[in-house]
Design a protein around this nucleic acid. Structure first.
Lengths: 188, 188
DNA sequence: GACCATACGGAACCGCGGTTCCGTTTGTCA
DNA sequence: TGACAAACGGAACCGCGGTTCCGTATGGTC
């Protein structure tokens, strides 16, 4: 691969990261090209499709989350799960496209299947530790994480009028994962 | 207004309700027209814009939710809030477009401002009752409802692979609204 | 320094879907 | 029943944005 080609590929990825982070999946290819200081044709030489470009970004983002999860596991704290969730949310807050991918699935989501699987394993470890310490409800499953985080994503992007307060949303959702109070008298 | 005009308006609204419920905001005007047994032009005679049509549907849906909320208030049960949330979720599950509007706001969302305000008042009543009975956490606010329900919407539409289990999501989120266990030893 | 495969730029292409326009039909009223 | 305003149908229009195409530029090699 020629030197300038490699350089351009990097520029494009960097530009795309910013553009997609800001404008979400609606980002236009021309915009990415412009930011990268490159023509659209060049973008298409490196990534056959907009979806493919986005998929690459999503994989990278998952790779980063895997790193976060590893750190959390190694931290060895009982509430590492919650700390991980908060850090993850903080990361996602600045990436509109990733939020949308997390919410709606599709090709880029599928493309990161391997990463997702790995991440799920690490999260399971965090959950187990939390359960052992009595900080996490017994019936929590690893799949609850994408479920709930997908929900939190709604409160992030889009500059919503009323429900833009994603930190509040996250707090509530994390509380949902703690062991509940004794079931409030099963009266009906 | 001519008789056939009124009749057509109703057909269009009915058709739109079904179409938007199925395909979400991505529903095409031609589809609505076809289902209503009418030409596109006729649809546009009655609703100047796709957004306007959707807005009308959203207002109707909120009107229905207001009805649900009134019922809940009149029920007079302590956990009326939770019962209301479950019924509401059940209603929303079959309306893809409403889910999207709830998630992303925009013009149709704004159009229902009055309804939203009224609904919020009723929900506040339900919350207060729940708090008095000790079933609802003290710091819950009426605005937490759209916040969390918006999140649940993610788990509804779109036939997602992993996180399609919206009932689970709803259960968790409702648990988040209950009074928490004693804060797990403020160690950190 | 010449050569050529590789890479680039960006104008043009194309399908999609919301919206418009106008000739035709139909309800209503005298 | 005749006349006319109101309403209808749907082909055509148009902007948008992803993708393609090809003439030009350039890094690497002999």
């Amino acid at each position: 691969m020629r030197a300038d080609a490699r350089r351009n590929r990097e520029s494009i990825l960097a530009a795309a990261k910013i553009a997609f982070g800001e404008h979400g999946t609606g980002t236009q290819m021309d915009d990415v090209a412009a930011r990268a200081g490159v023509g659209v044709g060049t973008v298409y030489r490196h990534f056959p499709t907009k979806e493919a470009l986005l998929a690459e970004l999503v994989v990278q983002r998952f790779e980063m989350l895997i790193g976060r999860a590893r750190e959390a596991v190694e931290e060895g704290v009982d509430d590492a799960l919650f700390r991980f969730l908060r850090r993850t949310a903080e990361d996602m807050a600045s990436d509109a496209a990733f939020q949308q991918v997390l919410m709606f699935a599709g090709a880029p989501w599928e493309a990161a299947a391997a990463q997702r699987a790995e991440l799920q394993g690490l999260v399971q470890e965090l959950i187990d530790r939390g359960k052992r310490a009595g900080l996490v409800r017994d019936d929590m499953r690893a799949l609850d994480v994408p479920l709930l985080m997908g929900g939190v994503c709604v409160s992030m992007g889009s500059g919503l009028p009323a429900h833009a307060d994603w930190r509040r949303h996250l707090d509530l959702v994390i509380d949902a994962l703690r062991p509940g109070p004794p079931p409030p008298a099963p009266a009906a």
